[in-house]
């Protein structure tokens, strides 16, 4: 324990403020990125050609005339770094010893208070992502060229990644949705804070349901494609118009 009469340096330590800002900024980026990511991935629902075009777009194909997969690697590395930073900052908030777990669980069981429960859901989903998200991130980092309708569907089905993706979908959507809601109430300046919070809560749940349904539909589409393509696993996708040309 710190002696309250111990000498305090008169200098102020700006880091706690910076770390809090960085926690929120990294969470904001990751949360918004995951929503966009879901939209890009779900392009498979519009057809194989659409998904192929989205994947090549991020490799700069339409700017440079040929795909540059290292662009994707570089972006994945950035996301990975932010992910590690965010998780490291979140460790400051984790209940670390048993007494803290018990204190929090006792409060949660007694109070039946939604936001208190949601924070604990964030801790659990965040903790699980520690272990599960790097598997996916590493694959994208090392094999950025293997993103495409057949390539991804093969990974989902023949590569047996679908159970991981199914779990990650729920982890990310729950954690990110709660996190973005929390960001709003944490920093926001509202005229009527109570009404704003009620509206934000409703918006948060609607978006979570929307992205879960979209995610499950998308995963089902990749599963179906992956099963159909299993006999020719490994064959890359060629878009319809290039097939006609060759």
């Amino acid at each position: 324990m710190k002696d309250p009469d111990s000498f305090l340096l008169p200098r102020i330590d700006r880091w706690p403020a910076r770390l809090d800002l960085l926690q929120s900024a990294s969470g904001l980026f990751l949360g918004l990125f995951m929503w966009l990511h879901m939209l890009f991935v779900s392009s498979i629902l519009l057809g194989n050609d659409a998904m192929w075009a989205v994947a090549r777009f991020f490799e700069g194909y339409f700017f440079f005339g040929s795909p540059l997969p290292w662009l994707v690697s570089a972006f994945v590395a950035t996301v990975f770094a932010l992910f590690v930073t965010h998780a490291w900052l979140a460790l400051r908030k984790f209940p670390t010893h048993w007494g803290q777990h018990m204190a929090y669980l006792r409060l949660m069981r007694a109070m039946h208070h939604e936001d208190t429960i949601l924070w604990f859901a964030q801790v659990i989903t965040g903790f699980a992502m520690f272990f599960l998200a790097p598997v996916h991130l590493y694959l994208m980092l090392t094999h950025p060229e293997l993103i495409g309708p057949y390539e991804s569907a093969d990974r989902v089905w023949s590569g047996r990644m679908w159970p991981l993706y199914l779990v990650l979908l729920f982890l990310v959507e729950l954690h990110g949705g709660i996190g973005l809601y929390r960001l709003a109430v944490k920093w926001g300046d509202f005229k009527d804070a109570i009404a704003a919070r009620r509206r934000l809560k409703r918006l948060k749940w609607s978006l979570t349901v929307f992205f879960l349904v979209l995610g499950l539909t998308t995963l089902a589409a990749y599963l179906k494609l992956g099963m159909e393509h299993a006999p020719r696993v490994g064959e890359p996708y060629v878009p319809t118009w290039q097939r006609a040309a060759s």
Partner: peptide, 28 residues
């Protein structure tokens, strides 16, 4: 920076003080 914005305080305060608003204000 120890406040995790759980807002239990806001929801139980018997005087209905605007704790969410005050905490966000101090945080900024």
């Amino acid at each position: 920076f120890g406040c995790m914005s759980l807002l239990g305080c806001q929801d139980v305060c018997p005087k209905e003080l605007s704790l969410q608003t005050q905490i966000a204000f101090m945080r900024r």
